[in-house]
Computed example of a mutant assay.
Amino acid sequence: MSMPNIPEGKFRPSMKETIIDLLESIALEEIALSHLLNAEAEKIQALVGKDLDFPSCPSNEEIFKFNHQTSKFLEVIVMKEWLLLRKLDDVIFLNGELKPLCSKGEHDDCDCDYDCGCECDCIEYVPCKCIEEEPCKCRHYHRGRK
Score class of each variant (00 low, 15 high):
57 C>H: 10
57 C>N: 06
58 P>A: 07
59 S>D: 02
61 E>A: 04
61 E>R: 04
62 E>R: 13
62 E>D: 14
62 E>H: 12
62 E>G: 01
62 E>A: 11
63 I>N: 04
63 I>D: 06
65 K>F: 11
66 F>A: 11
66 F>K: 06
67 N>F: 04
67 N>D: 08
68 H>T: 12
68 H>N: 13
69 Q>M: 05
69 Q>R: 06
70 T>N: 06
70 T>V: 10
71 S>A: 09
73 F>E: 02
73 F>K: 02
75 E>S: 12
76 V>E: 14
76 V>Y: 07
77 I>D: 15
77 I>A: 14
77 I>P: 14
78 V>C: 09
78 V>E: 10
79 M>T: 12
79 M>A: 10
81 E>H: 15
81 E>P: 15
82 W>K: 12
84 L>V: 10
84 L>K: 05
84 L>R: 02
86 R>G: 02
89 D>R: 09
90 D>I: 09
91 V>L: 01
92 I>E: 12
92 I>R: 05
93 F>S: 14
96 G>F: 00
98 L>K: 05
100 P>L: 03
100 P>H: 03
101 L>P: 02
101 L>H: 09
102 C>K: 08
103 S>Y: 11
103 S>N: 09
103 S>L: 05
104 K>P: 07
105 G>P: 04
105 G>C: 03
105 G>D: 12
106 E>M: 01
107 H>K: 07
108 D>A: 15
108 D>K: 11
108 D>N: 15
110 C>K: 02
111 D>E: 15
111 D>Y: 07
112 C>R: 04
113 D>E: 13
114 Y>C: 06
115 D>C: 13
115 D>Q: 09
117 G>H: 04
117 G>V: 12
117 G>K: 01
118 C>R: 03
118 C>P: 11
119 E>I: 11
120 C>H: 11
121 D>K: 13
122 C>F: 02
122 C>K: 01
123 I>E: 07
124 E>G: 00
124 E>S: 06
125 Y>S: 08
125 Y>E: 14
125 Y>C: 09
125 Y>W: 09
127 P>M: 02
127 P>A: 01
127 P>I: 00
127 P>N: 03
128 C>H: 03
129 K>W: 00
129 K>F: 01
129 K>C: 00
130 C>I: 09
131 I>D: 04
133 E>N: 11
134 E>Q: 12
134 E>W: 07
135 P>F: 04
135 P>E: 10
135 P>T: 08
135 P>W: 05
136 C>H: 09
138 C>I: 03
138 C>A: 06
138 C>Q: 05
139 R>I: 08
140 H>Q: 09
140 H>K: 09
141 Y>R: 08
